[in-house]
C-alpha cells in the first residue's frame, strides 16, 4: 500500500509537478498570503511536536516526506511526540530526517521535492527565502493561532480538515462530560509547575500544550499569579512558591531529560529548590500533587488532549480532595 502510494506520488510529481496542473488556493499564513496546493502530497514539516505530530494524528503520515527531529542519546533521530504517541518514527515511515533545530538541511528538503513546507513564524524566518524556492512555504504564527488554530491550520493545509473536525467534536464531547461531572470547575484551581534546579527557578506555566488547554476548556481556574501572565510561562523565583499553591498541582517528568526521569527525581528537584516544599504547599500536603509523564500531555494533538482530560477528570471528579484554604 505504502509502495503504491509512493509510486502514485512520484507519478503525480512527474506528471503534474507543483507548477503544472495541481489545483492551488491561497492560504493566509503568518508570512503573508501563500498560494498552496489544494491536495499536497509531499509535505515537509519544520517542527516535530506541533506540525509533524498533528499530521500523523490526522492520518496524513504518508503525505509527510520530511520532518525536523531530535537526536536521542544513541544519536538516533526521532520525532518527538509522534514517537511516544503513535509509534511513528523515521525508521517505520518514509519520513526523512531533516536536521535539528536551527540547522535544517536545505539540500535534503530539495531532494524530497516537496510541494508544501510548513514551519513556524519566529523560528524558521531565516530560512524562508531559501525554502520558498523549493515549494510554497507557510509559516504559522502559532502564538496568534492558539492551540486549536494551529492544529486546524495544519489540517487545513494538508487537506485533512474533516479528520480534524471529527476529533474536535469528540474532544468537545469530552469537555461537556467534564463540565457535567465537575459543575463548579471555576472553584477548583490547578497550577502547572516545573522545577529547573540547575537554573534555580520554578516554571509557572500558563500554557503547557494540551494540559493547560484542557484545564482552560474545562473551566478550571489557575492561581492569580499565573492567570495574570501575559507570556506562556514565568521563570519564577522559588520564594514565590506559596503564591502558586492550588487545589491541584501538576508537574511532569520526562525520560529524555537527565534529572527529570521519574516522579522521584522531580520531587528531589523541588526539594533542592525549596527544602520542605511539601509542607509549604497545601496540594502537596494533601497528596494532591500529580506527577504526569510529560510528552503524552505536552504536544499539539488530540491524543494529548484526551490523555490530559482523563487525567484531570480522574483526579478531580473521581476522588474527594481537600480544597485549598483561602
Amino acid at each position: 500500500m505504502k509502495l503504491l502510494f509512493a509510486a502514485a506520488a512520484m507519478l503525480a510529481g512527474l506528471l503534474a509537478g507543483p507548477a503544472l496542473g495541481q489545483d492551488t488556493r491561497t492560504f493566509a499564513a503568518g508570512n503573508g498570503t501563500v498560494t498552496v496546493p489544494v491536495h499536497p502530497l509531499r509535505i515537509v514539516s519544520l517542527h516535530d511536536l506541533s506540525i509533524t505530530l498533528p499530521l500523523v494524528e490526522f492520518g496524513a503520515t504518508e503525505r509527510v516526506v520530511g520532518s525536523h527531529g531530535r537526536l536521542e542519546e544513541d544519536n538516533v533521530p526521532y520525532i518527538r511526540g509522534a514517537k511516544e504517541l503513535y509509534e511513528t518514527s523515521f525508521e517505520n515511515t518514509d519520513i526523512a530526517f531533516l536536521g535539528v533545530f536551527g540547522e535544517i538541511d536545505l539540500e535534503r528538503i530539495a531532494g524530497l521535492e516537496p510541494d508544501l513546507i510548513i514551519g513556524r513564524l519566529g523560528n524558521d524566518d531565516a530560512l524562508l527565502a531559501n525554502l520558498e524556492k523549493l515549494a510554497p512555504t507557510v509559516l504559522l504564527d502559532q502564538q496568534k493561532l492558539g492551540f486549536f488554530g494551529s492544529m486546524q491550520a495544519v489540517a487545513d493545509l494538508a487537506g485533512v480538515l474533516p479528520d480534524y473536525e471529527r476529533q474536535l467534536a469528540r474532544y468537545q464531547a469530552e469537555i461537556a462530560e467534564f463540565k457535567r461531572l465537575v459543575p463548579h470547575a471555576a472553584d477548583i484551581s490547578v497550577a502547572i509547575l516545573q522545577p529547573w534546579p540547575e537554573d534555580g527557578y520554578i516554571a509557572a506555566n500558563k500554557q503547557y500544550y494540551a494540559l493547560s488547554q484542557v484545564a482552560l476548556d474545562a473551566g478550571l481556574s489557575m492561581p492569580p499569579l499565573i492567570a495574570g501572565l501575559d507570556e506562556p510561562s514565568l521563570d519564577m523565583s522559588p520564594e514565590l512558591l506559596p503564591e502558586v499553591d492550588a487545589d491541584f498541582i501538576l508537574t511532569s517528568y520526562e525520560g529524555l531529560y537527565p534529572g527529570q526521569r521519574s516522579p522521584d527525581e522531580i520531587r528531589a528537584a523541588f526539594e533542592t529548590l525549596v527544602p520542605g516544599y511539601c509542607q509549604v504547599l497545601s496540594a502537596c500536603r494533601n497528596n494532591q500533587m500529580i506527577f504526569v509523564a510529560r510528552t503524552p500531555i505536552y504536544s499539539s494533538s488530540f491524543r494529548s488532549l484526551t490523555t490530559a482530560y482523563q487525567l484531570l477528570l480522574t483526579h478531580i471528579a473521581g476522588r474527594g480532595f481537600v480544597p485549598l484554604a483561602q
Partner: peptide, 14 residues
C-alpha cells in the same frame, strides 16, 4: 533568542 544563537555560531546554512 534561539534563532540569534544559531547566527552567533557563524552559520552559512541560510
Amino acid at each position: 533568542v534561539l534563532s540569534v544563537l544559531t547566527w552567533l555560531n557563524g552559520s552559512i546554512n541560510a
